[in-house]
Amino acid sequence: MTRLIVWRHGNTEWNATSRVQGQTDVSLNDLGREQARAAAPLLAALRPDAIVASDLRRAADTAAALAALTGLPVRSDPRLRERHFGRWQGLFLTEAAERFPAEFARWRAGDPDPGAGLETLDDLGKRVADAFTDAAEANPGGTIVLATHGGAARQGVGHLLGWDHGVLRSVGSLANCHWTELRRDDGVERRTRPGWHLRAHNVGLITAPTPAESV
Rank of each mutant, 00 (worst) to 15 (best):
M1P: 11
M1W: 02
T2N: 12
R3L: 02
L4F: 07
W7Y: 14
W7M: 12
R8G: 05
N15R: 09
A16G: 12
R19N: 04
R19G: 06
R19V: 07
G22Q: 09
T24C: 12
V26A: 13
L28H: 01
L31P: 06
G32I: 00
G32L: 01
E34T: 13
A40K: 04
P41R: 07
L42I: 05
L43Q: 09
A44I: 08
R47W: 00
V52G: 00
R58K: 06
A60K: 13
A67S: 14
L69F: 03
L72A: 07
V74M: 10
V74A: 10
S76A: 15
P78N: 01
L80W: 04
G90I: 06
G90N: 04
L91C: 12
F92W: 11
L93D: 10
E98C: 03
P101N: 08
R106A: 14
W107H: 11
A109T: 11
D111W: 06
D113S: 11
P114D: 10
A116H: 06
G117T: 03
T120Q: 01
D122Q: 14
D123Y: 00
D123K: 02
K126L: 15
R127E: 08
R127F: 10
D134Y: 07
A136W: 02
A138V: 05
G141C: 08
G141R: 07
G142M: 09
V145R: 08
A147W: 01
A147Y: 03
T148P: 08
H149T: 08
G150L: 12
G150H: 11
G150Q: 11
G150R: 12
G150K: 10
G151N: 15
A153S: 15
Q155H: 12
V157C: 10
G158A: 15
G158F: 01
G158C: 13
H159C: 03
L160Q: 12
L161P: 10
L161F: 09
G162Q: 04
W163A: 13
D164N: 15
H165R: 09
V167P: 00
V167Y: 14
A175I: 00
C177L: 04
H178E: 07
H178D: 06
L182Q: 04
R183K: 03
R184S: 03
V188E: 14
E189G: 05
E189I: 01
R190F: 00
T192L: 06
W196R: 07
L198D: 08
R199S: 14
A200T: 04
H201V: 11
H201I: 14
N202H: 14
N202I: 10
T210D: 14
A212S: 07
E213L: 14
V215A: 13
